[in-house]
């Protein structure tokens, strides 16, 4: 029994010890932000959003997905980038650092200079998150934020 426990420990700990996660050494994250208009009354889906539509279909009550804007923002540790989302809303992103192979990214949404929303994401390499809800045109705004680590 003891040998089995030891074997299990070695099996799990050894790769951790020798395989330094690549992200830890990274100092920069390339953040892709897609601004999407999700619609209930339309079933038109932009081809590049078909995967997203499939994944969100069972979760959210929206059938139409239209890509409004796509931006790539290189973020350095401590660096802050800003993106205009709509006439009155803007997004700021700050890379606060790396932690256990994840990038800690702080996102804030401002509406007419007032902060309305803030979140801190622990993002894995090539990981993504979706922020949605604010009303936009005849639907809602969805933001897909994806981070790629860049050495």
């Amino acid at each position: 029994m003891k040998q089995l426990a030891l074997l299990l420990f070695v099996m799990t700990a050894f790769p951790l010890l020798i395989n330094t996660c690549p992200a830890i050494a990274d100092s920069m994250v390339m953040v892709d932000v897609e601004v999407i208009n999700a619609l209930q009354n339309s079933s038109e889906i932009d081809p590049e959003l078909s995967g997203l539509a499939r994944e969100l279909g069972p979760v959210l009550n929206y059938k139409g997905f239209k890509l409004l804007k796509k931006s790539r923002l290189p973020l350095k540790i401590g660096g802050r980038k800003e993106l205009l989302l709509s006439r009155e809303r803007r997004l700021t992103l700050t890379l606060e650092g790396f932690e256990s192979g994840q990038a800690r990214i702080n996102l804030k949404i401002f509406k007419n200079h007032t902060e309305i929303f803030a979140t801190t994401l622990l993002m894995a390499d090539n990981g993504s998150a979706i922020i949605g809800g604010p009303e936009l045109k005849k639907g809602v705004m969805l933001l897909r934020v994806r981070g790629k680590f860049d050495g």
Binding site: F117, A118, G127, S128
Partner: peptide, 14 residues
């Protein structure tokens, strides 16, 4: 796929 991301904190004033 390596795509796991986590929400550490979230807040909304509105």
């Amino acid at each position: 796929p390596v795509s796991l991301s986590h929400v550490e904190s979230v807040s909304s004033k509105s």
